[in-house]
Amino acid sequence: MRTGWPTQLAQLILVLGLAPLLTGVTRKVRARLLRRRGASVVQPYRDLLKLIRKEVVVAENASWLFRAAPYVIFATTWVAAALVPTFATGLPLGAAADLIVIVALLGTARFMLALAGLDVGTSFGGIGSSREMMFASLAEPAMLMAVFTLSLFAGSTELSSISAFMLGPRAGLSISVALALVALIIVALGENARIPVDNPATHLELTMVHEAMILEYSGRHLAVIEAAAFVKLLLYLSLIACVFVPWGTAVAGAGLFGYALGLGLYAGKLALLGFLLSVFETAIAKMRVFRVPEFLGVALMLGLLGTMLLFVSRAPH
């Protein structure tokens, strides 16, 4: 167990370092698909640096919660991301928190973000918080049902165990896992404010959700919140990669080559998933706000269906 700590530390730093790049790549691909040149893939890093150097403007009646929330949001998201095995499994923190905890940690981050949106007392912040919580009230159970499906399938809620089970001989193909995958993808789109649900690239659109909540933020606070959003996207893609394409992930005690291979493959998986995400985003139109609950409801139903099928088929006869 103790040997895992360097890996854990490496992963903590890796998710932080890679997250802006992933966002940069998806933006770049999207721009190219739209026949624009697009900003450089390192633009998100530059944005963060620029924001950090700027003066912070805080509304007069903002409370301490407004100023503390970005750090809480970032910290919980970061810890959650560090719990997902990226290039190597067998993380020491993984034994401390399972997939349900990851979902709940993201819930804590969302809770604080929604409160921060309400703190200044503007109508935009309120609309963002209200809608974010409405989406979450369907997305979170959908995610949990997908988690249930995976856990029942693999007999564990630990991500490392699930990943190992998926690699093992007993996994096989299962319709429940396919349902969980679809549900997870829908949730990932919704939770990361991607296109059919929310538009990450706009301000000032009446249907915006995430951007409306953070409208009052500026300077370093905004930088921290943006970084949290980057990490969250990376988390979801890592999660999908870890569970559904676990091949090549280094196990604890693998040699240096194993880790290098795991790292390379992980980068490849992320790039591929990011590419697919961009393709999907360019191919589809944004939904009306009140179509989103139906969209997320589909994820919830699919997750429930997957769980139910496993409940029936995994039973002793």
């Binding site: 950090i52 150097r53 700027k54 003066e55 912070v56 403007v57 805080v58 509304a59 007069e60 009646n61 750090y71 809480v72 970032f74 910290a75 919980t76 970061w78 810890v79 560090a82 923190l93 940690l105 200044v120 007392g121 503007t122 109508s123 935009f124 912040g125 301000h203 000032l204 409208l215 009052e216 500026s218 300077g219 370093r220 930088a223 921290v224």
Partner: peptide, 29 residues
């Protein structure tokens, strides 16, 4: 972990970021 992560972030931001902070009317688009 959360406390350490938050504290690290705050320290790093404090070390490298601009400390300027201005109170102003809400922006609200």
């Amino acid at each position: 972990m959360i406390v350490v992560a938050a504290a690290t972030t705050a320290l790093v931001v404090r070390r490298f970021a601009s400390h300027a902070l201005r109170r102003s009317a809400p922006w609200d688009c």
